[in-house]
Design a protein around this nucleic acid. Structure first.
Length: 210
DNA sequence: TGTTAGATACCCT
DNA sequence: GGGTATCTAACAC
């Protein structure tokens, strides 16, 4: 199965893969129990030529080594005492990646609420929030591969976005022409998307086609 | 209801 | 020291 995921994360440009990732089911077999959610928001980072990427100008350290791994490698990094979840895209040694910024809870919502001590849409509508909801508090999954460990992505049981919105990436500032490039993608109307206005919520079907 | 500003927190270089 | 996430409070509409 990992063979399929590897192909998924190496076919097409990274911004295309990012859009295709929306609606796929992220699964975590946690020690607490099974948790899963549809991916609602993600950002593409285009490697050494992308001034907002961790691998800008070919930067390579033990911390971002996972970006250079095979397609589908898990890259976990910390920022402001929180963790963010990335997936390495493209062939090995091509340090492009996709940041998962939001999921819509499917299974294990009660566990997530327990981990976050929050409920409602605030549960998983941000990169640090979803990691806290999943109960991932360290980097032991870093550099492992999706599908080979407790984290998995199910390509078959996802949702189809009715409409995908592209926007500039969050938190990227003063990065020259890369600052405003539309490499953030999200499911239009889904409430589990960071910084989305309430009036844009599609409360009927959360922006999904099915 | 939405936008903004400030405080906080911590691992990696 | 840089990173840009999250929570709260304050203010404008």
């Amino acid at each position: 199965m990992t063979e399929r995921l590897r192909r998924f994360f190496a076919t097409g440009t990274t911004d295309e893969i990012t859009q295709r990732l929306l609606g796929k089911l992220l699964i975590y077999h946690s020690p607490q129990g099974l948790m899963s959610g549809y991916i609602t928001e993600a950002e593409a980072y285009l490697g050494q030529r992308d001034s907002a990427a961790h691998a800008y100008q070919g930067k390579r350290t033990p911390a971002n080594e996972a970006l250079y791994g095979v397609p589908g490698t898990i890259y976990i990094y910390s920022i402001h005492s929180r963790l963010c979840l990335d997936v390495a895209a493209q062939a090995q040694d091509v340090p492009e990646g996709i940041l998962i910024r939001g999921i819509e809870p499917v299974q294990g919502r009660a566990l997530m609420e327990q981990n976050r001590s929050k409920h409602g849409y605030d549960l998983t509508n941000g990169p640090g929030k979803l990691m806290e909801a999943l109960g991932i508090t360290d980097k032991h999954l870093n550099e492992l591969e999706f599908g080979e460990t407790d984290l998995d992505i199910d390509l078959d049981h996802g949702k189809i976005p009715k409409q995908i919105v592209a926007s500039g990436r969050i938190g990227v500032s003063d990065r020259g022409s890369w600052t405003e490039k539309p490499y953030r993608f999200y499911v239009a109307g889904n409430p589990y998307v960071s910084k989305l206005s309430k009036r844009d919520f599609d409360l009927e079907n959360h922006g999904w086609k099915n």
